[in-house]
Write a protein that binds this DNA or RNA. Structure first.
Length: 120
RNA sequence: AGAGUCGGUCAGACGGUUGCGGACAGAAAUGUCUGAGGAAAGUCCGAGCCCCGCAGGGCAGAAUAGCGGCUAACGGCCGCCGAGGGUGACCUUAGGGAAAGUGCAACAGAGAUAUACCGCCGCAAACGGGCAGAGCUUCGGCUCCGGGCGCGUUUUUGCGCCGCCCGUUUGCGGUAAGGGUGGAAAGGCGAGGUAAGAGCUCACCGGUCUUACGGGAACGUCAAGACCCUGUAAACCCUAUUCGGAGCAACGCUGACUGUAACGGUACACCUGCCCGGUGUGUUACGAAAAGCGGCUUGAGCGGCGGGAGCAAUCCCACGCCCAGAUAGAUAACCGUCCACGACAGAACUCGGCUUAUCGACCGACUCAAAGC
């Protein structure tokens, strides 16, 4: 998984919602938190509010693609939980990628010296 | 070309870059192949598989409901019959029993499975009116005339009783023709019959059952006979047939824990030097957390447009194919080109059906109408 480890357990998601810092964009909500594993871990949530199985699958795929695009700028040692919002279904993955990148920079997780490495 | 009926197929395509699940190869890097649906959905039926239960029988409950066939099976499919709809192709059909019994039939109406309101008829009583016979007629009437008996009276006339006829009222009874109500009023209709009436009788027609004939059967018919002839069984019910329960989070395996039971009867150690007794070590079986592995895809498999049987569903044979097996869950992202501008929608043990959702495109068979040859 190119250094991305999936978060699977329910208690990990619960911990993220209660303890991690969060940022909001029209398409996603990002929870981020330092971990002690030394790698990047990602969990994706697409609830039934989004729609049926087809819509939820598309939302997860868009977020996976967008996050992979951001990966070069993200330092190791962080957990992320990204929650899909309804409007994500009507945009391209590049839009979501820009949105996530801006949120992470605002959070100070990745600094602007990585800007040159971003690829669309 | 118009209007329509039925059946079937497809479910954006191609190219590039970056990625994901699985299989195979490889020491590895990596490479090759492959990767959602017609409904994957609803979880409504039927099975496979699997676990639990089970001597046998009954009750309750549920499902099905014309006949024959197909199928592993079905409540599914095909064909046929009956009923209904359409000019037609064709479509619809929860299609056993009301003569086992019970219930219900609102409103209206006299009365709803039995009724007597009006009407019609008979008998009785009361009251009122009338009375033979004949002639003429312009059909309106007019004329001769005024039931029987008794009493009183010269007679007229009056009174009483009786008989018959008519009308009104009341009572008792008959009736289901007619009236009106209703979805439905004793199957319909006509004739006979009668005090008036009535399947009371008869003819014809309908219904149910039986027989006869035809058909493999449902069923049909020219017929014969019988008849307790309103509707309702998606009201109870009756009849026939079928049904034990749970589901892959099933179930199996590995297992920390050392828990339970049995065996062995003393091999070793300890309490204790010896006997009895006890504890631990032993063997077998069972239980079992987290987690993992299996189940998990080669099967009632798919295609079969080749051949055969059949009206068809379907079956048989040749031939070809291997077509997701994930386990927080893989098919995507981005770019380009084209067009009809892309609907409903995501496998989760597997099949056969049903039902529901669905932008459109195409193919085949057929019907109606019009025109032409």
């Amino acid at each position: 998984m190119n250094g991305i480890v999936k978060i699977k357990e329910n208690y990990e998601f619960k911990r993220a919602y209660s303890k991690a810092d969060s940022l909001v964009s029209p398409y996603v909500v990002v929870y981020y938190r330092k971990n002690s594993y030394g790698n990047v871990r990602l969990g994706i949530t697409a609830g039934k509010k989004i729609g049926g199985a087809v819509q939820r699958n598309r939302a997860k795929r868009l977020i996976t693609a967008a996050f992979r695009g951001c990966l070069p700028m993200i330092p190791a040692g962080y957990d992320f939980v990204i929650v899909a919002r309804t409007r994500i279904l009507s945009v391209k993955s590049t839009t979501v990628q820009t949105s996530i990148y801006n949120l992470l920079r605002k959070a100070g997780v990745c600094d602007s010296s990585y800007d040159e490495k971003i690829t669309y």
